[in-house]
């Protein structure tokens, strides 16, 4: 066999064998990886829409997915808004839970962020940031309290406290929350956020 044909045969064989091996590995792990992702989303939905026993994806676009959280009878409990927006270092992804009228925020959960540890990364901290999102009035756009108020009692029902030293990260989350709420409200008014099949499951 000439050298060039030997080269071709060897490379092809190596490639085909590797490909076959990988496709079987991919097949074996595919379901599990998908399941991991789904579980993470489900966990977050249950966290922000308390009492959820099942959920349904109602709307999906590139950086915004809206889930409906439902109780055991299949009645809608609230919306879980899964959104991604620009942060200080990289994008921040969160899950925001609201009531069915989109007037009240249940709570916020940060799912992915790469903010500065010790500063911007405090957006994942209950004490310094997340607690300010619990039971907030969102019938009007939320605003940021700058400089940070020393006690939560000073804040108005639609005000969020700034993390000291991390104004930009706090603002980034707030802006994405506000814009995703506006979008969700529009979709709801257009009647695009309907559960499929009445009392499904």
């Amino acid at each position: 066999m000439s050298l060039s044909s030997r080269m071709a045969v060897v490379l092809t064989t190596v490639g085909v064998l590797a490909g076959a091996f990988l496709s079987s590995i991919g097949h074996l792990t595919k379901e599990r990886i998908a399941l991991n992702k789904q579980r993470e989303i489900e966990k977050a939905i249950i966290q922000v829409v308390p009492g959820t026993s099942s959920n349904q994806s109602l709307y999906e676009e590139k950086k915004l997915t809206i889930y409906g959280g439902m109780d055991e009878e299949g009645a809608l409990l609230g919306y879980a808004i899964h959104a991604t927006g620009a942060g200080f270092q990289d994008e921040i992804t969160f899950m925001l839970g609201t009531n069915i009228d989109l007037t009240r925020i249940n709570s916020l959960a940060i799912l992915e962020q790469k903010e500065t540890p010790g500063l911007g990364a405090k957006i994942t901290n209950m004490e310094s940031f997340l607690r300010y999102w619990e039971n907030k009035d969102c019938s009007q756009p939320l605003s940021l309290r700058k400089p940070a108020a020393s006690s939560p009692e000073e804040l108005s029902p639609s005000e969020i406290n700034t993390i000291t030293g991390a104004t930009i990260s706090s603002e980034a989350v707030l802006n994405t929350v506000n814009s995703s709420l506006v979008k969700t409200r529009e979709l709801k008014e257009d009647g695009k956020l309907k559960l499929e099949g009445k009392n499904a499951r």
Partner: peptide
């Protein structure tokens, strides 16, 4: 053949890397 050894090594290495990556993700 020595002319294609680097290409072959990389394919072999990439295969195991992908296995490791999928395994960790799963």
């Amino acid at each position: 053949p020595s002319q294609v050894r680097i290409a072959s090594y990389i394919v072999i290495i990439a295969t195991f890397v992908t296995v490791a990556d999928r395994f960790l993700a799963a």
